[in-house]
Simulated scan of single mutants.
Amino acid sequence: MTPEPQALPGLLTPEASLHRLADDLAARFTGVFARETVDRYVFESYTALARTARVGAHLPVLTARFATERLTALAQTEGAIASDVCEVLFVCVHNAGRSQMAAGLLQHHGGSRVHVRSAGSQPAATVEDPVVAAMAEIGIDLTAEFPKPLTDDVVRAADVVVTMGCGDACPVYPGKRYLDWQVRDPAGLTVGEVRAIREDLDRRVRSLLAELHTAGSPA
């Protein structure tokens, strides 16, 4: 039985919203997943995000995005949804700085040639404000992004996993390419200091994209 979620301030009855979301996702993934699987992913995703949420009013919307991403990743892993581009996952500790910046940069430079996800081993409540500001300076909008916990499904769906400071938190599966980037953590830094991290990540991302393009295959 799926446990009933606990309400947060600003969200008095999460059950109704989550059941509606499960209805929508069950219809979207008809023939791919049983309703029980969809329900479990929706409620697990809500619970995971609620651990660090400061305000519950936007949590159903974030849950919808997170659950959809996880179910899509699971469907890709099981071969129910085909992916003809390289799947890249960036992982850091809080998913509030380095991994968000790298994901934004790779999506910006790679466009439709790649599909990018990010996650954190210990996700924070929000993306760091100086990170959002520094990325906005080069035309990359992170205001709609939010920290997401690292889950097994997104790791399994990735062709390339790039870790930054999260140690052994990321599970290792055969057939995937793993990279560990030594990049300074932007937590607590000024926008000026974050710019240097942004430039470091931009060079690394451009190099990775060139390698992926040259290889002509996901892994």
Rank of each mutant, 00 (worst) to 15 (best):
V91T: 02
S112K: 13
L59A: 07
S99L: 08
G110R: 04
G31A: 00
P9F: 07
A80L: 14
A53E: 05
A50M: 10
E128F: 04
G111R: 03
R117E: 00
H94M: 12
R40I: 02
E69V: 09
F33L: 05
A102N: 08
P147N: 02
H58F: 14
L49Q: 01
L59S: 05
G111C: 04
A80P: 00
E44L: 10
Q107Y: 02
L18H: 09
G79I: 08
F90C: 00
A7D: 13
H109D: 06
L8N: 01
M135D: 04
P147M: 06
R51S: 04
L89M: 07
A53K: 06
L59K: 06
A136Y: 05
E69P: 09
A26Y: 03
E69Q: 13
G139Y: 01
R54I: 15
D39M: 12
L11H: 09
F90G: 01
L74D: 02
R35Q: 11
Q76L: 10
T68N: 14
R40F: 02
D23Y: 07
T13D: 15
G79E: 00
V38W: 11
R117I: 05
S83Y: 03
Y41Q: 12
S118R: 03
A125K: 07
F33E: 06
S121K: 12
H109W: 07
P147C: 01
P14D: 08
H58S: 14
R28M: 15
A119S: 07
V61T: 13
V88A: 09
L11Q: 11
F90V: 00
V91P: 03
L49A: 09
L25H: 06
L89V: 08
S121W: 10
V32W: 10
G110V: 04
N95Q: 05
A96I: 10
A133Y: 01
C92M: 08
V127F: 01
V55Q: 11
H115F: 11
V131N: 05
V93M: 07
V55C: 05
S112E: 15
L62S: 09
V61Q: 14
V93W: 00
E36K: 02
R113H: 10
L12A: 15
A136R: 09
L89A: 06
P123H: 03
F29C: 02
L25N: 03
V85E: 03
F66E: 08
V38M: 03
E15V: 10
E36F: 00
A133G: 01
S45E: 07
S17E: 14
A119L: 03
E128Y: 08
E78P: 00
E36T: 13
L89K: 01
C92W: 06
E137R: 12
A22K: 13
A133Q: 13
N95R: 01
T126M: 09
C86A: 15
V61G: 12
T72M: 09
S121Q: 07
G110A: 01
C92T: 07
V42K: 07
R35P: 04
P130M: 02
H19Y: 14
E44H: 10
H108P: 01
A82S: 12
I138N: 02
R28Q: 15
M135C: 00
C92N: 13
G111H: 12
L12G: 07
R70Q: 12
A26V: 11
V32Q: 11
D141P: 12
E145K: 12
M101R: 12
R54N: 06
L12S: 15
V42F: 13
R65F: 03
E78D: 04
Q107S: 13
R117H: 10
S17R: 03
L11M: 09
A48E: 12
